[in-house]
Simulated scan of single mutants.
Amino acid sequence: MSADYTRVRRVGGVLARMSAEARDDEGARAIQAVLRKRGVPLQASGFAEALPRDATSRLPLVEEGQWPATPAFLTEEVGRTTSRFIEDAKNIALLAEKGVSARLGMLLHGAPGTGKSLLASYVAALLERPIYVVRLDSMISSRLGETAKNVRGVFEFMASREGVLFLDEMDAIAKVRDDKHELGELKRVVNTVLQGLDSLPDSVVVIGATNHPHLLDPAIWRRFPYKAELPLPDLSVRSAMWRHFLYANDDAREKDVAVLARISEGLSGADVENISLAARRREILDGDALPFPQLLLSALASRAGNPSLPDRRDLSAPERQKIAVALHKKANIKVSEIGRIMGVSRQMAHRYLKEDGNAE
């Protein structure tokens, strides 16, 4: 490839996605791990793509992201919106030919850990386009006028590329302009963002994301025809995530998947993934499966954005009672089955519930 580092990354991304589609998750992660090393010898050869940079720090304003090696787990509504958006993006040329405005943008909003960045990369992968992620640490400058200049530089860079521009944390550069607490400089930045979005050719797909949709300027909302709120995962999505990340789609663990999905209500997708991968690390390093009650306690002790990672320590009596009560209340599991899951007698399981006032 003539030491073309950018092309190496893109082809590597294709290989990682192909491995993931073939259910070779380990191979996909291995390829991505190599790509993340950023190939210092190739970069030194001078063939890396020239990215726009901040004039003072010389840091790049965007970086090319990687296509994901794991699937995106979406609710039915978000899945429909995403499918329509991808279909339109794949047919931009036809839409433009028929005189239908084809400039496409999708705005994602939702709590942290709900998969906004993953979904943006997933869309780029399905469109088979590179994804350019804006780096806010480089974009925002303390020098008067530099931030707006950097914003213009990013849009000028994207104008000549058929790629996906991902504007994460958009509220940092696109706050509502009547905010009396903001300086005039940031209000000018918002105008620059709007002008940049309007200047892009139809061939550029833009995806924005924010954790704080109420902070965005109304004019920003109008620039994105497609909008999707990514909620915390529902029961079916949680089931799919536990099945994929923890049990590698092992059909024999369906009962355990169902239990975990019910008691993990309120957790984000990132929380489920982190708990699952932590459990798998323990199993690999310890050479033995992690007891199921320890997994249940980890899910129960977690809060959205703050997962409690599982370990092998012996559970205390109050912890065992907490798990038993949760199995009864949240998963509607009978006493005999609770005893089996906890590895105790039916009488002990009944005692746990009775002490909490939940005996059948």
Rank of each mutant, 00 (worst) to 15 (best):
M241H: 09
A252Y: 05
P112I: 05
E182C: 03
L94V: 13
Q66G: 01
S264I: 02
T147K: 15
T114S: 04
V272A: 06
D168A: 09
I173F: 10
A317L: 08
K329Q: 05
S83E: 15
N91I: 06
A219Q: 02
L353Q: 01
M1H: 06
E283N: 10
A270N: 08
K149H: 15
K98E: 15
V62M: 14
G357F: 01
Y122P: 08
K90S: 12
E169N: 12
L267I: 05
L118D: 03
T192C: 01
M18F: 11
R38N: 15
G287Q: 12
S316E: 05
E128V: 10
E229A: 08
L51W: 04
R281E: 03
A219K: 02
R10P: 00
Q43V: 15
F166E: 05
I323R: 06
E76G: 03
A33R: 08
N332H: 06
I92Y: 02
A270H: 08
A48H: 08
S276P: 15
I284G: 03
A228D: 03
W242F: 10
R103E: 04
D356M: 11
H181F: 11
D4E: 04
T6C: 00
G266V: 06
E156N: 04
L108C: 09
N211V: 10
A172Y: 14
I338H: 03
M170A: 13
A55G: 02
R253I: 10
E265V: 01
D288G: 05
L107S: 10
L119E: 07
A102W: 13
V325S: 10
N191L: 11
T147F: 14
A258N: 04
A22V: 04
E87R: 15
E254N: 07
V205E: 11
D250T: 13
D314I: 12
A102K: 14
L167N: 15
I338A: 01
